[in-house]
């Protein structure tokens, strides 16, 4: 069965209660054609295990990397991703849209 965004938040709570460092990433804004709607979550634990999706796979790798940084520092970040050729040095969205992802630590 597909995990809903709600199941994902329950998993984040379970990880945090098990003593793991956890971050929640949330799509807070989208422009143009975006793969996942505003409010979609990706949750990440300190080992890089993740559940959910903020882009259907395009930028998850980078969000996970940033999330590990957020888990370490405790400081939230707002990430923006655009089409691949505009931000050639980092992951991009092949569908041509842009998304903003807020990443914060749980705890």
């Amino acid at each position: 069965m597909l995990s809903t965004d709600e199941d994902i938040l329950s998993q984040a709570e379970a990880w945090a209660k098990a003593g793991k460092g956890v971050a929640v990433a949330t799509v807070v804004e989208t422009w143009g054609s975006a793969p996942r709607p505003v409010g979609s979550h990706l949750v990440i634990d300190e080992e890089g295990t993740f559940l959910g999706s903020v882009s259907g796979g395009c930028v998850e790798g980078e969000v996970v990397t940033e999330a590990l940084d957020v888990i370490g520092s405790g400081k939230a970040k707002l990430l923006e991703f655009g089409v691949a050729d505009e931000t050639a040095w980092r992951a991009g969205l092949s569908c041509g849209g842009r998304i903003a992802v807020y990443v914060e630590k749980v705890g």
Binding site: E6, L9, S10, A12, E13, A16, V106, G107
Partner: peptide, 14 residues
């Protein structure tokens, strides 16, 4: 996000 807030959000859903 405070763990208590996350727990409360999940509890509301349940």
């Amino acid at each position: 996000m405070d763990l208590k807030l996350l727990s409360a959000l999940n509890a509301a859903r349940a």
